[in-house]
Amino acid sequence: MTILENTKLVDNVYRMKLGGGHKPVTAPGQFVNIALPDKFLRRPISICDWDDETFTIVYKVVGEGTEMMSRMSVGTELDVLGPLGNGFDIEVQKMRHPLVVGGGVGVPPLYGLTKELLKKGCHPTVVIGFNTASEVILFDELQALGVDVFVSTMDGTGGVKGVVTDAMAKACVLYDYFYCCGPRPMIEALKQETMTEGQISMEERMGCGFGACVGCTIETKNGFRRVCADGPVFLKSEL
């Protein structure tokens, strides 16, 4: 696929738009696995937004691979495998007011999710958490979809001081289902503090990204599950 856009959103976080010859995205929360020059393993990155011809990823520079991606210019060809994984299931019985919670670079797949939830006629509320105000991403984009977006920052420089559950409490958000993507401590807190069933996108170091190497397996109540092929999204009740 061809890079159509590669712009910096905030420090160390970039938005890349890719076009040309990809299989259709079947659910929000799926990811792509990108081959990079002089790297052996592909880099798995979740899909933020898509249409028939393109999709957009938002990624953080966390090592040599993503650093290399951040320097790639428009027009560069990339070997992209995917979309992979099962993504979020939005066909949930009796769901009217889903809560969508994200942290850091866990927020991007929730943008596509929120869009799809709105298309289905649901009324989602979005809560996103970051370390500090300068790291906040996709706030305007989410708000532009016409949903309520609450922000928390650890240092209080933006939104509610604290973590996402603090923002949830402050805003008195009512919900009948939840979706989540973020760091492990956030997932643990949500598992504890949510009263409803929900879906959680998990992250693990991956080998292949399509289920063959079983490198990213987690233990769930339903046995060993591969984050890449059986996930990345799992039910709260099975984790």
């Binding site: 020059p37 002089d38 790297k39 052996f40 393993l41 691979g65 693990e204 170091r205 991956m206 080998g207 190497c213 079983v214 490198g215 990213c216 397996t217 987690i218 233990e219 060993f224």
Partner: peptide, 21 residues
Amino acid sequence: RYGNPTPRIAECGGYGMINAV
């Protein structure tokens, strides 16, 4: 068997990878 704890995959430059599945 579940195998070993994660992370159990590591990148090794352009030439290979490590697994400890």
